[in-house]
Design a protein around this nucleic acid. Structure first.
Length: 158
DNA sequence: GCCAACGTTGGC
DNA sequence: GCCAACGTTGGC
């Protein structure tokens, strides 16, 4: 199956690309939006490319790359009464929420800011721009490759 | 910290 | 099934 591409948001001060770099892999629990849930449960596959986006950051933007290292599986944090992600409506026999695991790939030398993304006509169709509150979203191969190229090159050309 | 967008909940 | 109230997200 062809590799797919995604953009996933994390609040920078909660979990950043540097945290992922240090840990190597992470679990992506806590997504509580059905559209995002469906993407993780039904469409994300091991090896898919991920743009790691920092929200609530200065500036907000894509901070690096990750890959999907485990496809969708039940978000067991929802069953844990002590977790901030506990959801009494999710049950192990019929889990409501799903998660994936990510592996670190690279941190960009400089964040590709939302402002720069908005300024690129080729990126005008990204869900990021009109589905601002969707934290897991599909990205085309062309969008992924362009942002990767922008991220690997510093603005000053070095 | 503000507030617009937007998804969810719950009364009817 | 409608829709107002409410909660959350996330840019600014």
């Amino acid at each position: 199956m062809a590799k797919r591409y995604w953009l996933m948001k994390s609040e920078e001060d909660v979990y950043s690309i540097r945290d992922l770099e240090r840990e190597g892999t992470t679990t992506w629990e806590g997504v509580r939006n059905y559209e995002a849930r469906n993407l993780m449960r039904d469409h994300m596959r091991v090896g898919d490319g991920v743009l790691f986006y920092h929200s609530n950051a200065n500036p907000p933007g894509v901070a690096g790359l990750a890959t999907v290292s485990r496809a969708g599986y039940p978000d067991h944090f929802a069953f844990d009464r002590g977790s901030r992600y506990h959801d009494p409506k999710s049950d192990p026999d019929e889990p409501r929420w799903f998660m994936v695991d990510l592996a670190f790939q690279e941190a960009f030398p400089e964040v590709v800011s939302l402002e720069r993304i908005k300024a690129m006509p080729e990126l005008g169709q990204m869900a990021l721009l009109d589905r601002a509150r969707l934290s897991v979203q599909p990205v085309s191969k062309e969008e992924f490759q362009l942002i990767r190229k922008m991220g690997r090159r510093r603005k000053d050309g070095r």
